[in-house]
């Protein structure tokens, strides 16, 4: 049943080889995967296994050495940088490990920022941002600067910022990497809830098997190769 759906992300035979001096580092060594709309996927692996590299390829932040990355009908490997930026602006939300909020802007402005790149007028921008901050439970922290918020709160702002542009796919690279386990669980639950409610596709990188458990499907990656795909369909169906 699942396989008959058209994938939103389709990766074929993807290689990324870094040259460091004389030696070659095969960060990705022939990756094939399909991700379907509305899925919450996790990429799990040990440090240096190539998780971040894969995610960066999917988000169009890096060019593959070989292979195909197709998001819908767009082939990222064929796009130039202008087109890639445009693709991110229109289809992608991104959640960073280090939160990466702009320190000079308050929570509201940070969330509204990606909308300004689309030319959305300020009033509408701020209204939308305020709505999302409420969704992530930060209605009272709208005018706080990043330095005036805890890590968990900052990452909630990060989640709101990723959602504000109404993206088709959200990428997250170790979104809870800088948080303690209790806060991590909170943020993960928030992300899971939002993804389900808003029917977003989400790809998350983590090295924590427990956190990966929040996902519908888990890709295990070792030395640049996907070695195992874990499905958790039953759990998803139960909840529905």
């Amino acid at each position: 049943m699942e396989t008959k759906r058209t994938p939103i992300i389709s990766v074929k035979n993807l290689y990324k080889i870094y040259r460091v001096g004389e030696t070659q580092v095969r960060a990705l060594n022939g990756v094939d995967l399909n991700i379907y709309p509305g899925e919450f996927c996790a990429i799990v692996g040990t440090s240096g296994s190539g998780k971040s590299t894969l995610l960066n390829m999917l988000a169009g932040l890096e060019k593959p050495t070989k292979g195909e990355v197709a998001i819908g009908r767009c082939h990222l490997e064929k796009m130039n940088e202008n087109q890639l930026v445009r693709f991110r602006r229109e289809a992608v939300g991104f959640i960073f490990q280090a939160f990466n909020l702009i320190p000079s802007m308050n929570a509201l402005e940070n969330v509204a920022l990606p909308l300004s790149f689309r030319g959305v007028p300020k009033k509408i921008r701020l209204k939308r941002a305020a709505g999302l901050l409420k969704t992530v439970g930060l209605a009272e922290h709208m005018f706080h600067k990043p330095s005036q918020m805890s890590g968990g709160q900052q990452q909630r702002v990060g989640v709101a910022r990723a959602l504000v542009v109404d993206p088709t796919i959200i990428f997250a690279d170790e979104p809870t990497g800088n948080l303690d386990s209790a806060t991590s669980a909170e943020v993960m639950e928030l992300m899971q809830r939002v993804v389900r409610e808003q029917k977003k596709t989400m790809v998350m990188v983590t090295h924590d098997n427990h956190l990966a458990g929040f996902a519908d499907r888990i890709f295990h990656i070792i030395d640049g190769k996907i070695v195992k795909i874990e499905e958790k369909v039953k759990e998803g169906e139960k909840e529905r």
């Binding site: 988000a59 932040l61 940088e81 202008n82 930026v85 445009r86 991110r88 602006r89 229109e90 992608v92 991104f94 960073f96 990466n100 702009i102 920022l113 990606p114 790149f117 689309r118 910022r161 542009v165």
Partner: peptide, 16 residues
Amino acid sequence: TKEIGILKVLGCSLSN
């Protein structure tokens, strides 16, 4: 540098 990187990841166009 980092901030500019963030802007780019979030979709701020090169010309902007």
